[in-house]
Design a binder for these strands. Structure first.
Lengths: 196, 196
DNA sequence: GCTTATTTTGCAACTAGTTGCATAAACGGG
DNA sequence: CCCGTTTATGCAACTAGTTGCAAAATAAGC
């Protein structure tokens, strides 16, 4: 239930139309909360119906025409409430880890290539974050707002650093593993075809 | 679309009933792929209908009675296929990061307490993982299967280490921040109530 | 033996996110 | 001006996950 709050935050930073929001969700905000344009339009409708935002007055509100929104006091209050409320962290859910566990049972064939691909993807993401850090947070830029935003970026950088290290380690580990075309032996029996 | 494969993996490791699976999803597998019992029962039904698993023969298959499943060859093949196929990593989606970004606009009141709470939760999780590492992977236990499983556990440990460090840093940062009851100044104008 | 609690399985309805496509205006030539 | 492309908004249907509840078997008092 965080999308509306992501949108409120974005709109407070700068009133925008649906498409502008979509663009911003592809860049900055999307780095830790992604959303498609359909999600955004739907949510804008709801937020407007609830009186949390309103469309900026425009001439002819027709289709295919930009419609910009701004946050109303009620929306700001809701965002402040949500921000200060306690939320439990979501448990980890990662496909690659699941695949490795599966590989221990059905064999490691094919996984290594994707491990390398992920390593590459995470390296790129890390480079992108570091570029942003250089650009947006030069030494000295440390007002309260900068500190908060830098903290968030820092999480992204450290996370990607973790993944690149771990994936590099995983790739090494695979190199030392035996053949890798067959199920790894040593575990429970593989299920054999069985007639009934 | 990973739940069925998580279940297939679990069933290959050991044929189980729905409830046993649920228990295992609360412990080991759930550390990187959580699922509720309803999800599991529903998925067991689908997997059986598709011919990927079958119920172990039992006397009277009625309600409120354990029904255990085992993986059929087709299920094993499907799991092998899925494991070796390429999957893009899911983009990060984290509420706490979003809240910090929101806090930069609507004020930091209330966030610090939850930051500390999360720090505590992640420390506990880390301790739990390290305990498992001590117990299940003593030095010397490094067959191919052990290595793979240890690698997965290692990801969990390193991730929790990252979070505890980052959260500790965030808490420090907050301590240095001014008052924190008001929206942090220096950004875009707060939206003021406006009559139309 | 009857009742109450626990175990085990499951349905139904809901929320969140995704995918595919539609529609209308605006823009940019020829 | 007409026509294809881009911009901007949106509906409908689908997949995945969550929540609340219920029903059947079994175990546990008394």
């Amino acid at each position: 239930m965080s999308l509306p709050h992501a949108i409120l935050t974005a709109l407070l930073e700068k009133p925008s139309s649906g498409l502008e929001l979509t663009r911003r969700f592809d860049r900055s905000i999307g780095y830790f909360w992604s959303a498609t344009h359909q999600q955004i339009y739907r949510e804008l409708g709801k937020l407007e119906a609830e009186g949390h935002i309103r469309a900026l007055p425009t001439e002819q509100p027709a289709r295919g025409q930009k419609k910009s929104y701004e946050v109303l006091p009620a929306g700001r209050a809701e965002l402040a409430r949500w921000t200060s409320a306690a939320h439990d962290p979501k448990p980890l859910r990662d496909t690659m880890l699941l695949r490795l566990r599966a590989a221990a049972v059905v064999g490691t064939a094919g996984v290594e290539a994707d491990l390398r691909r992920h390593l590459d993807l995470h390296r790129r993401q890390l480079a992108e974050y570091e570029e942003i850090e250089r650009r947006d947070f030069p030494p000295g830029k440390d007002g309260p707002q900068d500190r908060l935003r830098h903290l968030v970026l820092r999480a992204g950088i450290d996370l990607e650093t973790f993944w690149t290290r771990w994936l590099a380690h995983a790739v090494e580990e695979f190199a030392e593993l035996p053949s890798a075309e067959q199920p790894v032996s040593g575990g429970p029996e593989p299920a054999r075809p069985q007639s009934r």
